[in-house]
Amino acid sequence: MYDILRASQAARVIGCGAPEVRHKLRIGVWKFGRVISPKESGTSQCSYEINKRDLADFLKISLEELEGRLESQ
């Protein structure tokens, strides 16, 4: 599997909505991901990259637990 998650996948693991993940990454409350500006990506909207290991560390769970949460839904 990939090491980078989308906001919707991270939201599934955390147990919240994707808009909340995007918002908290954008304002800097959560540090486990990166906001890519439209200028950087060449698109019309921001995009978000969430590193699996950083998310697992943030949640204080193993990568196996993170994978299990992703697969269970």
Rank of each mutant, 00 (worst) to 15 (best):
S37Q: 10
K24D: 09
E67Q: 13
G33L: 11
S72L: 02
C16E: 12
L5F: 03
D3R: 15
E40H: 03
K24A: 05
D54S: 14
V35N: 09
I14F: 01
Y2K: 14
S62E: 03
L5P: 00
E65S: 05
L25A: 09
G42W: 03
S37L: 12
A7V: 02
E49R: 11
Y2H: 14
Q45V: 11
I36M: 05
R69M: 02
R69I: 03
E67H: 03
G68C: 07
W30F: 12
G68L: 06
E49H: 06
L66W: 00
K52I: 02
E20P: 00
P19V: 09
P38G: 04
K60D: 14
Q9C: 01
G17N: 10
L66I: 10
A7S: 13
K60T: 09
S41P: 01
E20R: 11
I50S: 08
S62Q: 04
V21I: 15
V35H: 01
I14W: 03
K24I: 01
E49D: 14
Q9D: 06
A56Q: 02
T43I: 01
R34L: 13
D57P: 00
N51T: 07
A10W: 04
N51Q: 07
P19Y: 04
L59Y: 04
K39V: 10
I27Q: 11
I27W: 06
R22C: 15
E64Y: 05
A18W: 04
S62M: 04
G33V: 07
K31H: 13
R12T: 12
L63S: 01
E20V: 14
S47D: 06
G42H: 08
G28M: 11
L25D: 04
I4P: 02
G68D: 07
E20T: 15
E49T: 01
C46M: 08
Y2G: 15
K39Q: 15
W30P: 06
L55H: 01
R6Y: 05
L55M: 11
Y2R: 15
P38N: 08
V13F: 01
V21Q: 03
I27V: 15
G17I: 03
E71G: 10
M1G: 05
S47N: 09
K60I: 06
K24P: 01
C46G: 00
L55A: 10
A56S: 10
S72E: 14
I36N: 11
L63H: 01
H23M: 11
D3T: 13
S41V: 00
L55N: 09
G33W: 04
F32N: 03
G28C: 08
A10V: 08
A56V: 05
V21N: 13
V35C: 08
E67A: 11
S8Q: 10
F32Y: 12
E71S: 14
A11R: 00
F58L: 02
C16A: 05
A56M: 00
C16I: 14
P38H: 06
I4S: 10
